[in-house]
Design a protein around this nucleic acid. Structure first.
Lengths: 199, 199
DNA sequence: CGTACTTTTGAATCGCATCAAATCTGGTGG
DNA sequence: CCACCAGATTTGATGCGATTCAAAAGTACG
């Protein structure tokens, strides 16, 4: 991914190391850098009326908050949910380099991909049954019906807009009904899900 | 909006007139044109597993499916929900003109705006109470807490991911509780909502 | 005037959120 | 190595609110 960036830009990259639970930026502040997550995990969140936190997105790798490139201020909070390593690019330089080597095309494709992801997410959240959301997630985020989860089930529940209790229960019910297979892998908190019903 | 397009592109514009309920494009087909809705209404939808239709977006004015510019195929269906007039631009020419006069910057800003809208929509759908979704919509889509609805309440319900019965009931409850004001305007099926509680 | 659609209200049902509590887990420090 | 702790996982019971089905009243339009 980064190899598609103009060299001028790559040379201005600064590496940022952050521990788990440290903030990266907060809503309302002016973006100075565009971040690329190399390793770890960053969550984009927002606070509701009563202070409840809403998880907009969990990112394990790639650019964060791509829409902040031309934004006056961030529209959500970002914090590291795991110890993370990031590359930071000065926003100003980034904007200036967009015209270089047709780099804008790369960026437009990135934004388009994000829009598609968000449309999927929206469609998923519009489903009001827990099992429908799970299956929809397998079909859209998974590869060939198989999804490797990053992090805990509890974190996944937040992304799906479900309480973790409901997610646990529904997963077990689907498993019992042979609609999916749950494979817990060794030390890592990863699950592998496999659909058993046709598309 | 259209005045920001390069002249070369404007000259290739074709006008399209469609009646209500006519399809504009369907999921899976290859995009040949990029559409700008001048007048009327277009809905982007998707079909769920059991054939239920999910309304992803209702558009009254502006570009449709901006992400299709570099897409191999459409990722949702589009149809006119009202009699509409559109401008169609050949995709190929559009892509070629992006480099002209820094037009790509206009396009990137458009995509960024769409991403922000989708994030709002996602956050809204993650709220599980009808009144929270309504209020969130007023705060994000409205101007200064005032929102002019386009179309019927029933259509709005689909966008909010609620049954229309629940939306009607909750609107009346909020009105009775003085949390919002509903003003039905003459012939047009428009409502004006005004928040009465602080931000 | 009739038809199609929206708006409205009612009643029954179902599923999710919530609170609570127990168990399991990985990781830390003694 | 073991004790311990924080967090994830699991299970149970309860209540609320949204969906659904049904039906009536209102409204736009030809």
């Amino acid at each position: 991914m980064l190899d598609q960036l103009p060299n001028t830009l790559l040379q201005q990259r600064k590496t940022v190391q952050l521990e788990a639970n440290q903030p990266l930026f907060i809503q309302g502040t002016k973006p100075k850098f565009l971040y690329f997550l190399e390793e770890g995990e960053v969550q984009l969140t927002r606070c509701g009326q009563q202070g409840e936190t809403c998880t907009l997105q969990r990112i394990q790798q790639g650019f964060l908050a791509e829409a902040s490139l031309f934004a006056e201020h961030y529209h959500c909070d970002a914090h590291c949910s795991k110890k993370s390593r990031l590359s930071a690019f000065p926003i100003k330089a980034f904007r200036q380099q967009l015209g270089q080597d047709g780099f804008y095309e790369v960026w437009i494709q990135l934004l388009s991909k994000e829009i598609k992801r968000l449309r999927n997410q929206g469609q998923r959240l519009a489903l009001n049954s827990a099992s429908d959301r799970i299956i929809h997630c397998l079909q859209t985020e998974g590869e060939n019906g198989v999804l490797r989860l990053q992090g805990s089930i509890k974190e996944w529940a937040a992304e799906l807009g479900l309480s973790h209790e409901t997610l646990y229960r529904t997963l077990h019910r689907l498993q019992k009904q042979k609609q999916l297979e749950i494979v817990k892998q060794k030390t890592a908190t990863q699950l592998k899900l496999t659909m058993h019903c046709p598309t």
